[in-house]
C-alpha cells in the first residue's frame, strides 16, 4: 500500500526518529511504513492521520501497492 508518510514527515522537517517518538513506535517501524514494507494497523494509521491532521485515505492509498 502506497502512502504519503515520508512526504508529510519531510514537509515538517522531522527525522524518522522524531516521528517515531511522536507515534510511540520504533524508528524501524516508521521506516518500514514509509518504504511500504509494512502496513500499519488501523489504530496506528489513525494516530498517523491525527498527527498530520489529514484523513487516513489521503495518506494511505490501498489501490496502489508498494514496489
Amino acid at each position: 500500500m502506497r502512502n504519503r508518510v515520508r512526504e508529510l514527515r519531510e514537509a515538517r522537517d522531522w527525522s524518522q526518529g522524531e516521528l517515531a517518538e511522536r507515534l510511540a513506535v520504533s524508528r524501524q517501524t516508521v521506516n518500514a511504513i514509509e518504504t511500504g514494507k509494512y502496513d500499519p494497523s488501523l489504530p496506528l494509521a489513525f494516530r498517523i492521520a491525527k498527527l498530520f491532521r489529514k484523513s487516513i485515505e489521503t495518506i494511505f492509498d490501498p489501490e496502489n501497492g508498494a514496489s
Binding site: R6, E7, S26, R27, T35, G36, S67
Partner: peptide
C-alpha cells in the same frame, strides 16, 4: 504523491544501510 517523493521512496527501497547507520540504529534500539 509527487514524482520527487516517489523517486526518493524507490531509491530507499534498494539502498543498503551503511555500517554507521546499522550501529546508530542498534544504539537507538539499545
Amino acid at each position: 504523491m509527487d514524482g520527487g517523493s516517489l523517486e526518493s521512496c524507490q531509491a530507499d527501497l534498494t539502498r543498503v544501510p551503511t555500517a554507521r547507520e546499522v550501529v546508530r540504529r542498534a544504539i537507538e534500539e539499545f
